[in-house]
Design a binder for these strands. Structure first.
Lengths: 186, 186
DNA sequence: TTCATTTTTTATCATTTGTTAAATTATTTC
DNA sequence: GAAATAATTTAACAAATGATAAAAAATGAA
């Protein structure tokens, strides 16, 4: 997936602003298993996924995956990006990845200089917010089995590309529970 | 809580932009019990709470409260605001309220004209996003009793101002379960 | 292919949360 | 303040999910 498509898909930018943003982006690749981002560190970049699959997770006694990112999506440590503070999450590459890298510092400059890019940044946060809000509500309304069916419906490819342990923790249940749910659906 | 404090607290605005925003805001009051916003309707305003307390909820067979707003906070139907589509939530006033009203249409104009206001809007969405993300993670990590303790710690005043049925549904459990949890904590 | 390792499933029992109904306590209205 | 109404707690049982362990299946490496 091309960088201009990714940027434009978030919010339609005038050509000059799009070019300005693209000028600050560089390409980089990492192998499967690479830890792109460690917890408790301020991350100074954001990334757009050209190709591949990643997960964001938090480690305590257990390890909880709370986000998957695939082609076209943005990898961002919200705490770093918004508050310049260390984030709680780590990012692991689940497949070999081709990424576009953008320095947060440069993006901030563009936010202050270009009203279109500022609105692009606003739209990005707003869309992420709606997605997160919908997940929260889904968690409040639905039991584990309903949430699994919802995920199968909305993101069938994830089930194929990601191992069940990660899916289970994303759904907020144990792997054993997910296995049981799958067995009951047969 | 004064409107300039509320606006400024989200993101420090230059005086001229602050005035510009304030010029589009009017005051309005509603009594306790008033339904400010109905589900499945495009809401054309956003509100800032000068005084009072509200909740956002969704109705299905049961009724689930997923947000409380108090002094200084912003009442917004994200679906309406971001996508111009009917929202799923209703907003009920839990106390008599004094609100500041701002037409989404006017705000959108300002976003396109004033880079500071665009960044103000960006910061607003980003901060809401972090709050929502933290709630989602709390839901994924903690059991009901831990979530109740967390709420008591972070928002002790809510427990006093809101009846337990609403608190319970906010926490994602039944009122009976919350009662049991409270009994066990004694 | 074969062996070793990892992932997924199955089974059993424990714990948490849900459901329903009734009892108690608090609040509102007259 | 008394009666009516609403909110909260308690109790008993049901359902969902967690924890642990072992078996089965899938994957990867030599």
């Amino acid at each position: 997936m091309d960088i201009s498509n990714i940027l434009d898909h978030i919010y339609k930018l005038p050509e000059s602003s799009l070019v300005e943003l693209q000028n600050n982006v560089s390409e980089i690749t990492f192998p499967k298993g690479h830890i792109l981002l460690k917890a408790n560190k301020v991350e100074t970049n954001i990334y757009f996924i050209k190709k591949g699959l990643v997960r964001a997770y938090i480690e305590r006694d257990n390890e909880v995956t709370f986000w998957f990112g695939k082609e076209g999506e943005t990898i961002i440590s919200m705490k770093s990006y918004v508050e310049d503070q260390p984030g709680y999450e780590a990012i692991e590459l689940l497949e070999d990845c081709e990424l576009y890298e953008l320095k947060t510092e440069n993006l901030r400059k563009l936010f202050n200089e270009d009203v279109h890019i500022a609105n692009w940044g606003r739209k990005f946060a707003e869309k992420e917010l709606i997605k997160t809000e919908e997940r929260l509500i889904s968690k409040q309304f639905k039991n584990a089995s309903e949430r699994y069916l919802e995920l199968m419906k909305d993101h069938p490819e994830l089930i194929k590309r990601v191992q069940l342990g990660h899916i289970a923790s994303y759904l907020g249940i144990t792997q054993v529970s997910l296995s049981r749910i799958r067995a009951e659906l047969k």
